[in-house]
Write a protein that binds this DNA or RNA. Structure first.
Length: 609
RNA sequence: GGCCCCGUGGUGUAGCGGCCUAACACACCGCCCUGUCACGGCGGAGACCGUGGGUUCGAAUCCCAUCGGGGUCGCCA
């Protein structure tokens, strides 16, 4: 070994020990005589002191050092002189007195500072990913990710789960996200697809009798990116036989609570995780992935507005819609501009408009409120008792702002849900140390595809219907609930899963609703259906996103910060220059010809500097 | 596919029609400095403002296009 001690581990009890360290020069402070070098390795930093009097050879080398040079240092650990300790450094009580400094490798001046945690443009971070990863925050994130995966493996291993690998080269499926395709050289004109998830494979493993399967599985989806979406991402894919929904939710809840207690004890978690239905989530939070770190529930005010003179609301109610409201605490003094922004947010989600009612003035309580205090463009349509009734339902106080939206239930929920998040964000209502986990259950089984005028599977076509709804399967698909569930945290979808259909007869009924003929089903899922005809056990599973889990635990806003080599929003890799054009002979070999190239893709692959 | 934001020395920003012969901080280079830890002091080099076109007497500043990065809607069974 070129070293015998890690920089970050040194403490006072190591005093007088002779050590050999190796790492990067994080910073160098040259006092003309004494030189201080902060030496950095993965474990952390330690201050090295080079004294020209006691170590003249070391001093001559240290005089040349620059940031990010790689050096090895022989020296002695010493307790720092009184008054020179650095309490901000874990190793701040000690320093290393260098006897010998050896340059293992010099470094060019890096394109951005490693030691500073200053923001750097995303494209630079990605172009020089290996340098960005040197930053302590990124090494911390990579470490946390490792610990999460290790925790999961230990947890599931202890409960009898088998880690089984499934193919990366698989078959394109007609439903779901766009596939990444891989041409076959030995089968001209045919393509593999990279898995969007190992969904069908894990069900086959249940038929195979594996009973408890898991895999830390890479998944690929050729869809547009977001801060929380990468084209390749990692799921904990998991499936169990002979279980009910509750068994899976209990298991996942135990895994996540244990993981957080062990890895991130500073995080606050409410146990048990609330389990709410999709209907409740939509009605109360206007989202199927509610942020439950704060309250501000959407509240149905249809009853209060039943007799309203306000045509807009009246009309919405008459057409079978609802009037709902959400509270914006302490926002009664919002400017016209601020209110307009909120209204725009509502309109973006399909609302016709937003009614704002500001409760201003010096009233000490709602009872003391007068119409003088009620500021709203629609104030003349409201009687004071109506305003007070609404305010009471929303638990508003003087100084608060009421936000009302009227229309079809779905639109009202969506727009008020967005407003609720915006208000919570503006008011800083979410405790940053809080992780508000919860399960959302009873998702709809089907959703209407207006374009193709048919039903789609809301989750996937193998999701089991809710047992109580079974007799309505054909007669009223819209009302069908499923045994599908999500794990959510702080407004993010973290996991999704379901109990699966294991009887061929039920599967065929579902396929018929989806509009698949027997031949369609055979063509699309024949291999799975055949497998199910050989004694498939009742089974179900779930697939938590590893990247999103780590992102939340690491307090990061983007998945890119917890993935070693992420892609840009255009799904490109700035470090390798992928995707790229390939040589004509490579294309010929896989029987492909590019017939339509945009100017961009026609360009020569960029040579990496 | 739509909408929005950003693009100025190596990095991060300021400048937003003439005061810009482009400013500041950090980094870089040189000299000085024996207790600093975002060390300090003095001096220096370094950008023609992503790219292309246009408007204007005059453009980093306005307009259009384009490229790159980001956010978001659609999309992600």
């Amino acid at each position: 070994m070129l070293r015998d001690t890690n920089c970050g581990e040194l403490r006072k009890e190591h005093a007088a020990r002779t050590v050999r360290l190796a790492g990067w020069v994080n910073r160098r402070r040259d006092h003309g005589g004494l030189i201080f070098v902060d030496l950095r390795d993965r474990s952390g930093l330690v201050q090295v002191v080079i004294n020209p009097q006691t170590a003249p050879d070391a001093y001559r080398v240290a005089d040349q050092l620059r940031n990010e040079w790689v050096v090895a240092i022989n020296g002695t650990v010493g307790v720092r002189p009184a008054g020179t300790e650095n309490p901000r450094l874990p190793t701040g009580g000690v320093e290393v007195y260098a006897q010998q400094v050896e340059v293992l490798n010099a470094s060019k001046t890096p394109p951005f500072a490693i030691a500073d945690e200053a923001e750097v443009e995303e494209s630079l971070r990605l172009r020089y990913r290996y340098l960005y990863l040197r930053r302590s925050r990124m090494l911390r994130n990579l470490t946390l990710r490792h610990e999460v995966v290790q925790y999961i493996r230990r947890f599931l291993d202890a409960r009898g789960f088998l880690d089984v690998e499934t193919p990366i080269l698989t078959r394109s499926t007609p439903e779901g996200a766009r596939d990444y395709l891989v041409p076959s050289r030995v089968n001209p004109g045919q393509f593999y697809a990279l898995p969007q998830s190992p969904q069908q494979l894990k069900q086959l493993l249940m038929v195979a009798g594996v009973e408890r399967y898991y895999q830390i599985a890479r998944c690929f989806r050729d869809e547009d990116l977001r801060a929380d979406r990468q084209p390749e991402f990692t799921q904990l894919d998991l499936e169990m036989s002979f279980v009910e929904q509750k068994d899976i939710l209990d298991l996942i809840e135990a895994m996540y609570t244990g993981m957080i207690e062990e890895l991130c004890p500073a995080k606050r978690v409410v146990k048990p995780f609330p389990r709410i239905t999709y209907r409740e989530a939509m009605d109360r939070y206007g989202s199927d992935k509610p942020d439950m770190r704060f309250g501000l529930p959407l509240t149905d005010l249809s009853a209060e507005m039943a007799e309203t003179q306000f045509q807009v609301l009246r009309q919405a109610l008459a057409q079978g819609g609802v009037v709902k409201g959400v509270l914006a605490p302490g926002s009664a003094d919002y400017s016209r501009k601020q209110l307009d922004d909120l209204a725009q947010l509502a309109r973006d989600r399909g609302a016709r408009g937003l009614v704002t009612i500001a409760l201003r003035g010096g009233a000490q309580s709602l009872d003391a409120l007068t119409m003088e205090d009620v500021h709203s463009v629609a104030a003349r349509f409201f009687a004071l008792p109506q305003v007070k009734a609404m305010a009471r339902r929303l638990e508003a106080k003087p100084g608060d702002l009421l936000l009302l939206v009227a229309g079809p239930r779905e639109v009202v929920n969506a727009s008020l849900g967005a407003l609720r998040l915006e208000v919570g964000h503006r008011m800083g209502l979410a405790d940053p140390s809080m992780m508000a986990w919860g399960f959302v259950t009873d998702f709809p089984l089907f959703e209407w595809n207006a374009q193709e005028k048919r039903w789609n599977a809301a989750h996937h076509p193998f999701t089991a219907p809710h047992p109580e709804d079974m007799e309505r399967l054909e007669s009223d698909p819209a009302s069908m609930r499923s045994q599908a569930y999500d794990l959510v945290c702080n407004g993010n979808e973290i996991a999704s899963g379901s109990i699966r259909i294991h009887q061929p007869e039920l599967q065929e009924r579902v396929f018929r609703v989806l509009g698949y003929s027997r031949e369609d089903a055979q063509e699309r899922f024949g291999h799975l259906l055949e497998a199910f005809s050989y004694g498939a056990p009742p089974h179900g599973g779930i697939a938590p996103g590893i990247d999103r889990t780590v992102m939340l635990l690491a307090d990061e806003e983007s998945l890119r910060e917890v993935i070693a080599f992420p892609k840009t929003q255009n799904a490109t890799d700035l470090l390798f220059g992928a995707p790229s054009t390939v040589r004509p002979e490579q294309l010929r070999e896989v029987h492909l010809r590019v017939v339509e190239a945009t100017p961009q893709s026609a360009k020569e692959p960029q040579s990496s500097a």
